[in-house]
Design a protein around this nucleic acid. Sequence first.
RNA 1: GCGGGUGUAGCUCAGUUGGUUAGAGCGCUGGCCUGUCACGCCAGAGGCCGCGGGUUCGAGUCCCGUCACUCGCGCCA
Length: 611
Amino acid sequence: MHAYRSHTCGELRAEHVGQIVKLSGWVHRKREHANALFIDLRDHYGISQVVVYPTAQFYEAAKRCPSESVITVTGELLKRDEEAVNAEIPTGAVELRADEFIIESGAAPLPLPVFGEQDYPEDIRLTHRYLDLRRETLHKNIIMRGQVINSLRRRMIEGGFTEFQTPILTASSPEGARDFLVPSRLNPGKFYALPQAPQQFKQLIMVAGFDRYFQIAPCFRDEDARADRSPGEFYQLDVEMSFVTQEDVFQAIEPVMAGVFEEFADGREVQTPFPRIPYKESIEKYGSDKPDLRIPFELTDVSEFFTDESKTGFGIFAKITNGGGKVIAIPAPGATDNQSRKFFDSLDKWAKKEMQAPGLGYARLRKEEDGAVVSQDPALKNFDPAHLKALLEKMGLSAGDGVFFSAGKTNDAYKLAGAARNKIAADLGLIPEGVFKFCWVVDYPMYEWDEDNKKIDFSHNPFSMPQAPEGKTAMQVLEEADTDEKKLDILAYQYDIVCNGVELSSGAIRNHKADVMYKAFEIAGYGPEVVEDKFAGMINAFKFGAPPHGGIAPGVDRIVMLLAGTNTIRDVILFPMNGQAQDLMMNAPAQVDKAALKELNIKTVAVDPKA
RNA sequence: GCGGGUGUAGCUCAGUUGGUUAGAGCGCUGGCCUGUCACGCCAGAGGCCGCGGGUUCGAGUCCCGUCACUCGCGCCA
């Protein structure tokens, strides 16, 4: 018989009764009864019940054996009495009578209970990640992650894509985040960068004449964490294709995304085809370029209703709208009827505190005896009746509903309105579960106004191809944009996939023409030397025959996160770092030996706590 | 860098208006129980109330500072 097991803890059934079997696993739970000790023995595959009778000479040892010790038990598999069958588990019809009992590895008192699904502090979970990973939910998530990646890989290969491996030690890449730097021993004073994405490499793979590239690619960015953003590193399904239009990329990727979500949906609905929403429309309707389409209401620009103070009696919004700002209405369906004043006040408080905004005005809409809908709250209280009626029609709201107003500079007003839309929907319970609503967000602007530096800059990836109307070239479009206003109106072949308000991916048709690239950078205020210095590998390659190409890079961690039904990215990563980008289990980052630094020609300096 | 929340037993949490010896559940230890499967019953151990300072006759509770974790803003496709 095998040293450790004849079966796994998940496979024994009635048909095995009478056999001598051997199981190894962890002591999950123990129940001592007058005439028998029951042990739930757990491994990767399941749980089997072991019964130890007091007559066994190892009874005391088994009884004292702590939870999560690893044991090996040999004995006869017994059929359970009818009344004793546990229908909850697949192995519930049988139990293993322990005739031999070996403690392979005892467990010390646990800092983190494995049994049960209770929530525990993040730092303890991360420090003892191997214990947390023994728990059912996390264990399942990690298994699913593997299956999702297998599925993505299979679907890409079936779609005619080839998997490539690009360098980890490389030069700084153009994604705009902070780089992780690695000192070079052989080149004193010089550093590699870890790739923020294999962006330039995958484009160079196209220039090299390969056609359909993909990679489950590790990406490294030294930016602060969020609940849905792991610090330091994450994985993308990185894709690039030659001789394609934006439409070709959509046709290649939409079935992969829809397919993998359907495969793991487990009863949840996946809506296809994915609607396409222009960036501008997304901002105007949802206050965000990652709209949650499950939310059954949209924003309305009501600025025009507040410009004339004589009709509104409300000076604050008049001042904002006349100063070029906007007032955006966010509906709260049914909230006047169903919610207390506290609900409305708490959102205002949330806007001030968490969003660091001036505030979020609100109005509760009630019906007067004569049938007119009015509000006693400040923003609408003194409205001219006909004017109020027109406003309510514009917003599509009636008595019983509530409405919030986000007011300020255009970008700020939409940003707050978008966040408020998400929060209001969540607080009112208006976000349906059990459905994945995707969309493509398209037609991103090529440039945006950089308020800090008072200049035009790239809004996203500088390597996107500017859109040009039929009969015009991209170069012509760039050359004809002779004012800031015209420059800001240029759109790019740049797109995102969003699912349930989670940004899964962005991609673009690339700018593969060297001369257009120089011009595009010139508009953003960068001379040719910047292009040549920063993106030497790519711009040189483009001078030797580059195919038109484009691609996309859906985030693997976020795909798994959505499928696992969690909104914490750490729940789908095997060994994640904490919010401060520390690995509490491995104790990284850490100081290194002076000798190691010397070899790398590096000196560390003390940080002045006051600086 | 900024803002919100949290911090009380190994873990999850309660702790009133500032008032005597800080509680419960889970876990742990010991005992009991003829079959449990979140077993049950009895008993026990276990506390720098995150840390430092202040107010007060008296602080888990109020104030100031600080640290840790977490969520968000900035940042980041």
